[in-house]
């Protein structure tokens, strides 16, 4: 749940979602779920000339599995906290693995 937790803090921030088909969509992150499906509002397509069919779309729901990157505003990320959260997640996973193996 680390990244779900992480993305929840980015709600209402401007992000750029780069899809695996090379389309990049910039917009306001409106919501995210545990599959990291993403809902963007007020979108604009980077390189719009290349993908005119999206020019009239105002908001999109993006299935998490088609996402390659999400470009984030660095000032919205608390990196020490994020690293701590990552360590916690890793420790939990490790202890769970240990429990199940023993």
């Amino acid at each position: 749940m680390l990244f779900f937790s992480f993305f929840k803090t980015l709600v209402n921030h401007e992000v750029t979602v780069e899809l695996k088909n090379d389309i990049s969509v910039r917009g306001t992150l409106k919501s995210v779920d545990q599959y990291l499906n993403i809902k963007l509002d007020d979108i604009s397509v980077v390189e719009e000339m290349k993908y005119p069919h999206l020019s009239s779309v105002k908001n999109v729901f993006i299935r998490g599995s088609v996402v390659r990157y999400v470009h984030l505003p660095a000032n919205a990320v608390d990196t020490p906290l994020l690293e701590d959260a990552t360590r916690r997640e890793a420790s939990q996973a490790a202890s769970k693995a240990k429990q199940s193996s023993s």
Partner: peptide
């Protein structure tokens, strides 16, 4: 360049 980037694991 990107100042902060989320990378989906399946890539």
């Amino acid at each position: 360049q990107s100042e902060m980037l989320f990378v989906r694991g399946d890539s």
